[in-house]
């Protein structure tokens, strides 16, 4: 079973995302900020990361840069999922190694399309 780490400071969003992604037959873990997400990746590198941008302690962008520098950190497909919906943010995210980008609000179809786009399903 593939694994996905959902990183978002909103427990509601994490719950919604978990339900959607479990529907694609993934085992889902959650983290509420970038630092906790890095800990989770050190324990077990996921196949996919669904990543919010704005979070306390460490934001999604910082997390991504750290992740990509970690041993094995190049492999997860990282899909941003954020309200930062402007081209400048998207370009920065891609430059830092994001594979796809979802602009909130999101729904199952969009997550599915993006996961397909990066070859996760």
């Amino acid at each position: 079973m593939k694994t996905c780490l959902v990183v978002d400071d909103s427990s509601v969003i994490r719950k919604v995302a978990r339900r959607i992604i479990e529907g694609f037959k993934f085992a889902v873990n959650e983290a509420e900020d970038g630092e906790k997400a890095l800990d989770a990746c050190r324990r077990q590198m996921p196949d996919a990361v669904l990543l919010d941008w704005n979070m306390p302690v460490m934001d999604g962008y910082e997390f991504l840069k750290h992740l990509r520098a970690m041993p094995g950190g190049a492999s997860p497909k990282v899909v941003f999922c954020t309200t930062e919906n402007d081209v400048a943010h998207i370009a920065r995210a891609l430059h830092a190694g994001a594979n796809e980008y979802i602009m909130k609000p999101f729904d199952k179809e969009i997550v599915e399309a993006k996961f397909q786009e990066v070859g996760l399903i």
Partner: peptide
């Protein structure tokens, strides 16, 4: 709309071929 460009369009192509 944002919704319309999210379905099916790879993000690199959105950034490359659209003005926001």
């Amino acid at each position: 709309s944002q919704f319309e460009v999210q379905r099916g369009l790879p993000i690199q192509m959105l950034v490359k071929y659209f003005d926001q």
